[in-house]
């Protein structure tokens, strides 16, 4: 069954994600990203970020592994087509960010194999004062299942 416009605006529960040094180190090591901005305090202090930060794709790892999606989706139909990160404030080790997943858009497009649906899922991350730190935006192609 296709999704309809009523899913726009649905949200997940809010969860708190704590940014831990070891986790950030493991994430950077897996990529092989050895930028001193994640480890060298002196270097980082002199940078545009004025302190240590995390790798730019780290927000993808900021899931607690148990928060349910705001809507039920059939995994077999999902294709992660595009990913975007919008950065508002630096993410630092020790941050405790309040995260919530939102359905921000849904639209249809006519494709070669029939109608395809495009779903935008935003994970909004806010600091303890409620200020927006980052949005991790996942663009999902929701395909029709082959008959």
């Amino acid at each position: 069954m296709d999704l309809d416009q009523s899913v726009i605006g649905l949200t997940s529960n809010e969860y708190v994600f704590e940014v831990e040094r070891r986790h950030v180190g493991q994430f950077a090591a897996a990529i092989g990203d050895d930028h001193p901005l994640y480890t060298d305090e002196e270097y980082a202090n002199q940078s545009a970020y004025a302190g240590l930060i995390v790798p730019p794709t780290f927000p993808i790892a900021m899931n607690d592994g148990k928060t349910e999606m705001p809507l039920a989706l059939d995994q077999r139909r999902m294709l992660h087509g595009e990913q975007e990160f919008l950065y508002y404030k630096p993410i630092r080790i020790g941050d405790r960010l309040r995260c919530q997943i939102k359905v921000s858009d849904l639209y249809d497009k006519e494709g070669k194999s029939g109608k395809m649906q495009f779903l935008k899922l935003d994970t909004e991350m806010k600091d303890e004062t409620g200020e927006l730190v980052c949005i991790s935006r996942m663009n999902i192609v929701y395909r029709s299942l082959a008959n």
Binding site: H35, T57, H80, Q83, F85, L86
Partner: peptide, 30 residues
């Protein structure tokens, strides 16, 4: 993982930014 490849692009962008710039947006189509 597609996100590992995006991690490479993230690494590249941070290296371009060096100490002088902040990255405001990063986007990738798989």
């Amino acid at each position: 993982h597609g996100m590992l490849v995006m991690g490479f692009l993230g690494e590249y962008v941070m290296k371009l930014a060096g100490q002088e710039a902040r990255v405001a947006n990063l986007k990738m189509r798989f």
